[in-house]
Design a protein around this nucleic acid. Structure first.
Ligand SMILES: [Mn+2]
Ligand SMILES: [Mn+2]
Ligand SMILES: [Mn+2]
Ligand SMILES: [Mn+2]
Lengths: 218, 218
DNA sequence: AAATAAAATTAGTCTTGACTAATTTTATTT
DNA sequence: AAATAAAATTAGTCAAGACTAATTTTATTT
């Protein structure tokens, strides 16, 4: 089995890979985990020895088949626990991520499957991220962001790219959650700010950064 | 906040204190945790520095008010998670302890209280141990064992003193669970074996060690 | 009271997973 | 192509929490 740290690295590598499909460098991992690149290099060696990743200066870090499988299970547990915390324990949207960050490491062969069943086999977590099934497959991941929407276009908020509580609290304040309908009224050329109409109500202006953090379904 | 190890030591000291009321020595702690006494001495220093325990060669280890409070919360979380695993996730009696051993360390200020509410404020865990309330109070702990019962006497199984799966599986095999009625038919003087009638059925013989591991309500 | 056994403690080692500082390698500019 | 900047790596350090082996203290026998 893997240590807590190894698991966090595995999940991080998996998420970077899903997010961007770009080359995964030690610096990228370090930044994402808030660690020093030197520490990342150490862990790259450990995970390589355990045959969970391959590292090539050209291609960057890549998960092996086993590494992918293990990382997927950690993500599955994380997202299932998030559903549990929100639906069963009435936590708020912005509180669940950090707790799931710990719960995802609980080791028991049947825990994820039992939790999955108990929750009614949810397809998506509360942030709109697909929950890997026991067999590793999962529903569609959304990749278009609000910033990609054409002026005048309508969309449905499908997921959020950022799970920090500052972002999620801002969304709550704007009355935006998964499923909310949004229309892009205008894009300000100066700084790419977006003027939007939330759920058919009046206009609100949001930043480019904001737009790029909201994943949509057109 | 405390580290995982510190929490395990705190809980261990708390449980030893509850169990026997005897002097808690480094050796006793070492034995209970499966650690080396030298390691225990190290941790005693750490917990003393953190003002969670006091150590006196004469009186042994004692929890301070703060240590007691913190230990109680860990025990509360442990027992609540056990109820959750058994009742909601359909785990077996003998599987829950080890998983709760990990879950008890999840740190979130409101998690125990939310879980408590979700479970309907249970008074006892699946092994019959009382669950500390948010305020630290808890229901009665049973202390009489089956081995203390008078010949001919009847009792109700209230709790188990041992949570190893070998013991719990044996109980299941004998069809004994919390609430089962037992009559002590005979005590064998040679080795204190107990001849009992389980739930009004035929006789079964069990060892002294067995009898001392079953807590009863007369 | 000595001798012996058991318990507690100290000293030193190891592993994990972080860090900093220094160096080397690779990329980007000029 | 040389200079510069950025990224990666190496070397060495540290704290936590375990261990073993040696020693000291306390209890128990004889
Ligand atoms: Mn985590
Ligand atoms: Mn999520
Ligand atoms: Mn534990
Ligand atoms: Mn229990």
């Amino acid at each position: 089995m893997h240590t807590l740290s190894e698991e966090n690295y595995l999940k991080c590598i998996y998420c970077l890979w899903q997010d961007k499909g770009q080359k995964i460098t030690p610096t990228a991992i370090a930044e994402s985990l808030g660690n020093n690149p030197a520490s990342v290099v150490d862990m790259i060696r450990k995970l390589t020895d355990k045959q969970l990743i391959n590292y090539d200066k050209k291609k960057g870090v890549e998960l092996t088949a086993q590494g992918q499988k293990d990382a997927t299970l950690i993500v599955r547990r994380h997202r299932l626990w998030e559903v549990f915390l929100l639906e069963k324990l009435d936590y708020d949207w912005d509180e669940i991520h950090d707790i799931a960050e710990e719960l995802e490491h609980i080791k028991d062969a049947s825990l994820a499957d039992r939790l999955d069943k108990f929750l009614g086999f949810p397809e998506y977590d509360p942030h709109g991220d697909p929950i890997p099934k026991a067999n590793g497959k999962m529903a569609k991941r959304y990749s278009t962001t609000l910033a990609d929407l054409k002026t005048g276009g309508y969309c449905r908020v499908a997921a959020v790219k950022d799970t920090t509580s500052s972002f999620l609290q801002y969304l709550q304040k704007l009355d935006i959650s998964i499923g909310t309908k949004i229309q892009l009224i205008e894009k300000i050329p100066f700084d790419n700010s977006l003027v939007i109409s939330i759920g058919g109500n009046g206009r609100t202006t949001v930043s480019q950064k904001f737009g790029e953090s909201v994943l949509i379904d057109i």
